[in-house]
């Protein structure tokens, strides 16, 4: 178990988190449901967490893992505020479609 990853080069982790990050970005761009978009943003943050942990592990430096805690705190706070906003909007327009919110423009 402990030796399972020894032969995995670090680049693979970089690749994985970049991929996750880009999936998140594309999800944000593709979806119209605000809740799904919010989840995609969470995915982006998670890919960063993975990146931080992998850096921390390969460099034997715990700072990265501590930083992940802060990212989690922020992610939780963001989700709370974001969902509160969505609930408050849903009361007014009865929709979570991002394209229903286009009033402010030009």
């Amino acid at each position: 178990m402990e030796n399972a990853l020894v032969s995995v080069p670090h680049n693979w982790y970089l690749l994985l988190s970049s991929l996750l990050f880009c999936i998140g970005v594309m999800g944000v761009l593709f979806r119209r449901n605000v809740i799904v978009i919010l989840m995609c943003i969470e995915l982006m943050l998670n890919s960063v967490n993975l990146l931080l942990v992998s850096f921390s592990a390969y460099a034997q430096n715990a700072d990265g893992q501590v930083f992940v805690f802060f990212v989690m705190v922020v992610a939780a706070a963001e989700v709370a505020v974001g969902l509160a906003l969505i609930v408050s909007i849903y009361r007014n327009v009865a929709s979570t479609d991002i394209d229903s919110m286009k009033k402010l423009k030009w």
């Binding site: 970005v25 944000v28 761009l29 119209r32 991002i98 394209d99 919110m101 286009k102 009033k103 402010l104 423009k105 030009w106």
Partner: peptide, 17 residues
């Protein structure tokens, strides 16, 4: 330039990317 400001969040995000 004003018309670029379409009001669509997705568009803004796209422009950002």
């Amino acid at each position: 330039l004003r018309l670029v400001q379409t009001g669509s969040t997705t568009f803004y995000l796209l422009a950002m990317v």
